[in-house]
Design a protein around this nucleic acid. Structure first.
Lengths: 91, 91
DNA sequence: GTTACTATATGCAAAAACTGCATACCCAAT
DNA sequence: ATTGGGTATGCAGTTTTTGCATATAGTAAC
């Protein structure tokens, strides 16, 4: 499912136009993003937690050539599924 | 930020009552969940992709006793941040 | 207020992710 | 409808993450 299909479904469920459904959805993702930018994690009970994880610089390797490569430190958004979410897929 | 705080923010941004904002939010997470249950991944352009990843069975360990334990195969929801999302935190 | 969930901390084995890069593919926006 | 761009895949080898049991503390939900 892509964003377009998701918005179409929401449009029906929420009784909104597709444009409004998309605006609503974008507002939510942007709100989550802003919180993460502000160095905050976002916990959604029953769904999961979004966190920004810091990755240290390290030595990697080009799999083609085997050449060693210095990899800079970075940050990535991690999603940790909540208990309820795990259970849905494991029973 | 927790769900309550997120809903409060959305209530403002979307000009909805808190109850409606929460309903809207829950509808979205449920829609995503349903898609994942249906063995589908959910791609959200500019944000990320939710996938169900299969984890193989493996050997674990009780950290208290050191006793070895067989861990069954399982599934978990993975979130892969989109390029745009990574760039926000790495520049 | 009471119940439920979540984070944490512990040691350690094995799975999985990460790196560059080219290709194929699918989506999004023009 | 076309095209540009993000995304998936495969490759190997090293780094990183995962998740086991369990109690406690803190937070959130109802």
């Amino acid at each position: 499912m892509n964003k377009k299909q998701l918005v179409a479904k929401l449009s029906g469920s929420l009784n909104l136009s597709k444009a409004d459904a998309e605006r609503t959805f974008d507002t939510i993702t942007n709100t989550i993003l802003d919180a993460l930018k502000g160095d905050d994690s976002v916990k959604i009970a029953g769904f999961g937690t979004y966190k920004v994880a810091k990755r240290k610089a390290r030595v990697g390797r080009n799999p083609r050539t085997g050449e060693q490569i210095q990899i800079a430190a970075s940050q990535k958004v991690k999603f940790l599924p909540a208990k309820a979410l795990k259970e849905v897929f494991n029973r």
